[in-house]
Design a protein around this nucleic acid. Sequence first.
DNA 1: AAATTTGTATGACAAATATCATATTTTGTT
DNA 2: AACAAAATATGATATTTGTCATACAAATTT
Lengths: 225, 225
Amino acid sequence: MNKCEQCIVRQFSSLKALNKDELIRMAECKTSYTIKKGEPIFEEGEVTNGIYCIKDGVCKLSKLSDNGKDQIVKLVKPGELLGQRSMISDEPANLSAIALEDMEVCFIPRSEVMQFFNENNQFSMNVMKTICEDLKGADDHIVNMAQKTVRQRLVETLIYLEETFGKNEDGSLHIQLSREELAGMIGTATESCIRLLSELNKSNLIELNGKKIFITDKNKLKRFS
Amino acid sequence: MNKCEQCIVRQFSSLKALNKDELIRMAECKTSYTIKKGEPIFEEGEVTNGIYCIKDGVCKLSKLSDNGKDQIVKLVKPGELLGQRSMISDEPANLSAIALEDMEVCFIPRSEVMQFFNENNQFSMNVMKTICEDLKGADDHIVNMAQKTVRQRLVETLIYLEETFGKNEDGSLHIQLSREELAGMIGTATESCIRLLSELNKSNLIELNGKKIFITDKNKLKRFS
DNA sequence: AAATTTGTATGACAAATATCATATTTTGTT
DNA sequence: AACAAAATATGATATTTGTCATACAAATTT
């Protein structure tokens, strides 16, 4: 069993507030999982009964809409926690969490987290601030979805992907989404997404090579939207 | 100075967890305001330094988008608190709060609320659960904005308005929004909103009489979307 | 009461986006 | 390597939505 004390990603989450004793307790009750690309960590409506700490890999939080399409609400990266809202609301998950890459995650049971939550004020404050950030982000997201064109949303999403998840050595976006997933982030039809990518490609703002996307001219791209 | 103890709307908010002593302390430091229809309680970017308890009247939470249009993110009714997220994040307001009717609100300074927050566990838990509800609502809102048509959003908004804020004696929606505001809720151009309302009117699903909107056949309206 | 401003309504048109069809490419499987 | 399945790409077209112009109505001011 790995020690939570020595886990680097913990430092980036609310868990950084836990003391040595608490970390040892956590290490004893946690379960580590490996999740393959495409597999769910949990799904919409599922009772999670605990939180997940993302050690490695990125996942999407999405929700199935009435029209049968999956809308991606947020991407989550290593160091973040999943399931905090459900834990506090004591409700099933509102969103599905699906791995976009092979992942390593640790599950910490609700009972244990709630104990930290009640006895460690800094920890609960951290959790709360994270949820508040999420709420602010979601409100801004609503405004963008409601007021921006598909092209603007696509351009901004591409820039977000580069700035948040970085580039490979060859300069391509590190996070590889299928066209369908990218469409699911910006809230449009897959064909529209493909078409706009082609257009940006032809305008020499991005370059497409198979699944790889290169942002050729970020400044021009920003201005374009 | 009115006593918070005797205030009914307090019972509907997180403040219901406060004990008698705390309520007396709150009554001493609160400030009561009257806000006229159309006036702001606070605006985007403003440092609020406390929370507002809505005693009477409804307000909109909105954000100005880059395209110059105001997107309404949420409506807030009596019994709810405003500014909780800003208080916890210790950040300026992310949204503007503008009165849709004449309002009565009480302002409670940040210092006081944070004291309740730290010493009264039930209160802080209530605040957190409210923020979690808001986050869930916002996530769902994102999916609707991204995946539903303007017509669907309009229909669902009309039904939401009736079910949340009720009807007048004559059967019209109690909350009166201008066409521009309604367009700002569903995220569309004012003209498009007006046109779709006319269409619903011609299809005998709703009835328009000046600013008044009557939902004639709610079930058919639901199915229509 | 007349005049001005503001909000609502509608037509005409343009632009954006979705849908359906089909081709091409990539990926995975046998 | 050959095949099947899935993903990507593109054309044609329909539909939705936005924009601009203008008319009309209601509220407000003078």
